[in-house]
């Protein structure tokens, strides 16, 4: 249970019952399996790369987690397009100027907020189901990105580029950002009134409304917050990879949902956890690098990845029911 109401002394012993446990186990196994091939060399580099790439997945995954917690049918499919649009517009705005790094961040967050508000209004005012609303809106955002990009690849400011690829005390800066966001999300989900409201909404929206939960406020903040995190990720990813590309968000549609599922959150809503998102994000990177280093082709890699995801979800749900 997500209940942290009783801090039982047996918490350490029952750690395997935690929903995020299997995602972390799988990540550790993938990590060790990769290192076995290299006989232990390059462990630090692999960890550093995993933390960096996983932080992108974790940040969008946290946004997606809050949306999925709202219950069946709630999912944000516009995350890739929002990332692309935010990355494109913010880099175009900064145009390589170091002094515009923070205003550029504001532009990226603004794009995210705008996309979130649009998504919410489509859902609320036009009463379009979230899946359809965010999917159709994503075409709009993607078109805007194409229109403003016009094939140009603008480099990020050097200082920003250095920050996103750099490390502090050996830990990649992006991982620190991702961990900071995860900490804030954990506080929000587990300790705040708002987190309770989201969980109540996801378990039974009607009952939540009748219990005085401001359900429309919860819905709006959740969708807008998820899009803002997507905007931030677009900004970081574009800066990290030396410029915005129109397909930069593509793989994050599946990843954002996969990390939520692998992380042990209930796809039926109402029951989520933040550690699992990071576990899932690390796993999604490590499994690919493990299969790569074993020299498996793209086709086999996808099949094995899919099979492992199914195995983790099955293991986690088996534990949940005990």
């Amino acid at each position: 249970m997500a209940d942290a109401t009783a801090d039982r002394p047996s918490a350490v012993l029952s750690i395997h019952r935690r929903p995020w446990f299997w995602a972390w186990v799988a990540s550790a196994v993938a990590f060790v399996a990769t290192l076995m091939l290299t006989e232990g060399r390059g462990g630090g580099d692999l960890l550093s790369a995993a933390l960096t790439f996983a932080s992108f997945s974790a940040i969008v995954g946290i946004g997606q987690m809050f949306v999925i917690t709202l219950g069946p049918g709630n999912v944000d499919l516009s995350i890739p397009a929002t990332m692309t649009l935010a990355g494109t517009l913010s880099l175009k705005f900064m145009d390589g100027a170091t002094g515009l790094i923070l205003p550029g961040l504001a532009v990226a967050l603004g794009v995210g907020l705008g996309a979130g508000v649009t998504n919410y209004l489509l859902i609320r005012v036009l009463r379009i189901p979230p899946i359809i609303a965010t999917l159709s809106a994503s075409f709009l955002y993607q078109s805007l990105a194409i229109w403003s990009n016009r094939g140009l690849r603008i480099k990020p400011p050097a200082a920003l580029s250095d920050f996103t690829t750099g490390a502090t005390l050996g830990v990649p800066n992006l991982a620190l950002v991702g961990l900071g966001i995860a900490l804030a999300a954990w506080l929000l989900l587990e300790r705040s009134t708002f987190g309770r409201w989201i969980s109540a909404f996801g378990q039974n929206e009607r009952a939540a409304r009748l219990s005085g939960v401001p359900v429309e406020f919860v819905r709006a903040v959740t969708f807008i917050g998820a899009a803002a995190l997507a905007g931030l990720t677009g900004y970081l990813l574009a800066s990290f990879s030396g410029g915005a590309a129109l397909n930069m968000g593509q793989e994050y549609l599946l990843i954002s949902i996969a990390v939520v599922v692998i992380g042990g959150c209930s796809i039926a809503g109402g029951y989520s956890n933040v550690p699992g998102i990071w576990g899932g994000a690390l796993f999604m990177f490590l499994i690919v690098s493990m299969l790569n280093s074993y020299g498996l082709g793209a086709g086999v890699r996808l099949i094995v990845t899919g099979a492992i995801i199914i195995a983790i979800v099955a293991a986690a749900s088996g534990k949940e029911s005990t």
């Binding site: 109401t5 705040s192 009134t193 969980s199 109540a200 039974n204 009607r206 009952a207 219990s211 109402g270």
Partner: peptide, 30 residues
Amino acid sequence: RDGIMPLWSILRNVSLTTLSALSRRGLVDR
């Protein structure tokens, strides 16, 4: 249909409506 939050403890079910009054700066005073 209208009341129970099935994933939650008894305590959380009791406190749902009073949550705002029980919180400080957005965090629930447990």
